[in-house]
Nucleic acid binder design. Structure first.
Length: 177
DNA sequence: AGAGGAAAATAA
DNA sequence: TTATTTTCCTCT
């Protein structure tokens, strides 16, 4: 079957439990430069930007998506606009959504959509690891039976600490968020 | 121009 | 105050 050129649309979608929809606080950002191999671009609108990338038969209908970035909008700006009910605070996860509309000879159009895994866009959330400030015990019997109190940051109050054997004679605690 | 980091500014 | 966001700065 011979293929016709198609247009791949790319936009930034939500990543919460509700159904996939355009993310109000993020937009795709078209980036250019000599490191960008995909000559494709094109930005369209409807309150959410959409990158359009040509998929050509000569490229085996493939495209390297190195021309898309994710731009964060200022929360207050978005929350201001009428109709928007969501709040941006702590809503920092997105998914890249791809879709193509294929015109059939029958006159019908088939649309296909795929989305990426969630992407954490918050500098803080993305890189802060659990940090232990102090422990009430430095050592204790391997059999356990003692209580250790751990103070720190970036982990929940109900986090579990699992001790595993890392190497001969050495043990380490693993913080399980 | 961007990517990464980090300081400065705000929100809760 | 702490948590989180936004602005700034630097290195490629």
């Amino acid at each position: 079957m011979e293929s016709e050129p198609l247009t791949l649309q790319l936009f930034i979608g939500t990543a919460d439990d509700r159904l996939l929809r355009p993310h109000a606080f993020y937009q795709v950002h078209r980036i250019t430069g000599k490191t960008v191999s995909t000559p494709s671009h094109e930005a369209l609108h409807t309150n959410t930007k959409i990158l359009e990338i040509p998929l050509l038969p000569e490229n085996n209908m493939r495209a390297i998506i190195d021309c898309a970035g994710i731009l964060k909008l200022r929360n207050s700006d978005i929350e201001l606009r009428k109709g928007e009910t969501d709040i941006g605070r702590k809503n920092t996860r997105v998914r890249m959504v791809f879709r193509v509309h294929i015109n059939q000879n029958t006159g019908r159009t088939v649309s296909l959509q795929a989305s990426s895994n969630p992407i954490e866009c918050s500098q803080r959330s993305a890189q802060e690891l659990p940090l232990v400030d102090k422990r009430s015990l430095e050592t204790c019997p391997a059999l356990g039976g003692e209580r250790m109190r751990i103070d720190g940051h970036n982990f929940q109050h109900d986090s579990k600490v699992v001790f595993v054997e890392k190497a001969q004679g050495k043990t380490g605690g693993v913080l399980d968020s």
